[in-house]
């Protein structure tokens, strides 16, 4: 059992080194790398075509996060609802036999 702990400790140390190194080497906090998709969603005024774009113009919702959750990425929300349903079904199934 100590053999297992030793091997686990070695791999854990390697993972520690990777995590700390990448936490120090990642880009600075507050300056995200690519924001094209999010800027498109947040919206603005297109000077060339003289039109508005963005979430507020397309979905009518003032809350951009809600319009992302329910409109742009509705499939994610559908999968999430399925996962919640599966969790409820699993919990009820696990405890069903105990109640009798």
């Amino acid at each position: 059992m100590s053999m297992r702990n030793a091997v686990a400790a070695i791999f854990f140390a390697i993972v520690c080194v990777f995590f700390v190194f990448s936490a120090l080497m990642i880009h600075s906090f507050g300056v995200p790398d690519a924001t094209d998709m999010d800027d498109r969603i947040i919206g603005g005024f297109d000077m060339e075509n003289n039109t508005y774009y963005g979430a507020q113009n397309e979905t009518g919702a003032n809350n951009v996060v809600t319009s992302v959750v329910f409109d742009y990425r509705g499939f994610d929300t559908l999968g999430e609802a399925t996962i919640l349903f599966t969790a409820v079904a699993g919990v009820v199934l696990v405890f069903r036999r105990l109640k009798k």
Binding site: P32, T35, M37, D38, I41, I42, A55, V64, V65, V68, V69, Y72, R73, D76, T77, E80, I83, L84, T86, A87, G90, V91, V94, F95
Partner: peptide, 27 residues
């Protein structure tokens, strides 16, 4: 404004975390 898409996906992730936590604890 802050980027909305990571916040929306974090919302998804939180609910999935609650579901997984409930299932793990019942098991």
């Amino acid at each position: 404004m802050a980027l909305p898409v990571p916040q929306a996906l974090t919302l998804t992730s939180i609910v999935i975390g609650v579901a997984v936590l409930a299932l793990m604890l019942s098991l």
